[in-house]
Amino acid sequence: TRVETATETAWISLVTALHLVLGLSAVLGLLLLRWQFPAHYRRLRHALW
Rank of each mutant, 00 (worst) to 15 (best):
F37Q: 02
S25Y: 01
L22F: 05
V21W: 01
H40L: 08
H19P: 04
H40Y: 09
L14M: 13
I12D: 01
A17C: 12
G23E: 04
L33M: 10
H40C: 12
W11L: 04
H46W: 00
A26D: 02
G29F: 12
W35V: 14
S25A: 14
V3P: 00
S25D: 06
S13P: 05
Y41F: 13
L30S: 10
L33K: 04
E4V: 11
V15W: 00
H46K: 05
L28N: 03
Y41H: 08
W49F: 03
V3N: 01
E8W: 00
L48S: 06
L18D: 04
R2S: 13
V15M: 06
H19N: 00
H46T: 10
Q36D: 00
T5V: 03
A47Q: 08
L30I: 11
V3T: 01
R34H: 05
Y41P: 05
L18G: 00
G29P: 00
L48V: 11
S25I: 05
E4H: 12
V3D: 00
Y41N: 03
L31M: 13
A39E: 15
G23A: 15
T1M: 12
R34S: 09
A6Q: 11
L18N: 04
T7L: 11
L31N: 04
V27F: 13
P38A: 14
W35D: 09
F37K: 03
V15E: 00
T16Q: 03
Q36P: 05
A39Q: 14
R34P: 05
A6K: 11
H19A: 02
A39V: 15
H40M: 10
R45D: 04
A10R: 10
V21M: 11
A10K: 13
L20N: 03
L22C: 11
S13C: 14
E4L: 12
L48K: 04
R42Q: 13
G29M: 15
W35H: 14
A10Q: 10
H40P: 14
R42W: 10
G29D: 06
H19C: 01
T1L: 13
L44R: 02
V27K: 03
V3I: 14
R2F: 13
L20W: 07
A6I: 04
E8N: 02
E8G: 06
P38M: 09
A10I: 07
S25L: 08
R43W: 09
L33W: 10
F37C: 08
T5C: 01
H46C: 10
L30R: 03
Q36G: 15
L24K: 04
S13H: 10
V27P: 01
G23Q: 06
I12H: 06
A26W: 08
F37V: 07
A6C: 08
L32F: 06
H46L: 09
V21A: 13
E8C: 06
G23D: 03
L14G: 02
T9I: 14
H46R: 08
S25C: 15
A6E: 09
L20D: 04
A47R: 12
A39R: 15
V15N: 07
A6T: 13
L20M: 12
R2A: 12
L14K: 01
A47N: 08
L30E: 00
L14N: 02
L28G: 02
E8A: 04
E8F: 00
V21R: 02
H46S: 09
E4M: 15
T16R: 03
L24R: 00
R2E: 12
A39M: 13
L31Q: 10
A47D: 06
T16A: 12
F37N: 02
L14S: 02
R34C: 07
L22K: 05
R2N: 09
L22M: 12
L18K: 02
T1I: 14
A47G: 07
F37E: 02
R42N: 11
W49M: 04
V3G: 00
T16G: 06
P38I: 09
L33P: 01
E8I: 04
Q36C: 08
L14Y: 01
Q36A: 15
A26M: 13
A26F: 15
L44N: 00
L20R: 00
L24M: 15
W35F: 15
L44K: 01
A10H: 07
H40A: 11
L24E: 01
L24A: 08
P38H: 12
G29Q: 01
W35M: 15
W35Y: 15
L28V: 02
A39Y: 11
P38F: 07
V27Q: 02
L24N: 01
W35T: 15
V15P: 01
E4A: 14
A17Y: 00
V3R: 00
R43M: 08
R43N: 08
L18M: 12
W11E: 01
S13Y: 13
G29I: 14
T7C: 01
H40I: 07
W35G: 15
T5Q: 00
W11I: 08
E4S: 13
H46G: 09
L31Y: 14
W49Y: 06
T9N: 10
H40V: 08
A10M: 07
L28W: 07
L44G: 03
A17W: 05
L24Y: 04
H40F: 13
L30N: 03
S25R: 03
A26E: 03
Q36L: 11
L18V: 06
F37Y: 15
W11Y: 12
W11G: 02
V27Y: 11
L31W: 14
W49D: 00
E4Q: 11
L48C: 14
S13D: 05
P38S: 12
T7D: 07
T16C: 12
L32R: 05
W11K: 01
A47H: 10
H40S: 10
T9G: 11
E4R: 11
E8V: 01
L20I: 11
R34M: 06
H19F: 00
R45Q: 08
V3S: 03
L24S: 04
A26I: 10
T1W: 12
L48R: 05
G23W: 09
V3M: 07
P38R: 14
S25W: 00
V3K: 02
H46E: 09
L24T: 05
L24Q: 05
R45Y: 06
R45E: 04
W49V: 03
A17M: 11
P38D: 14
I12T: 12
A47V: 09
W49G: 05
P38N: 13
T5G: 00
H46M: 07
R45L: 07
T9E: 08
R42M: 09
R45F: 03
L18C: 05
E4D: 10
R34Q: 07
R34L: 04
A39H: 15
L33D: 03
A10T: 10
G29Y: 00
Q36Y: 15
T5K: 00
H19G: 02
V15Q: 06
V27W: 10
G23M: 15
L31G: 04
R34E: 02
L22P: 01
L44P: 03
L20K: 02
A6N: 12
T7I: 11
R2Q: 15
S13Q: 10
P38T: 07
V21S: 09
L18T: 06
T7E: 06
V27A: 10
A39N: 15
A47F: 09
L48G: 01
I12E: 01
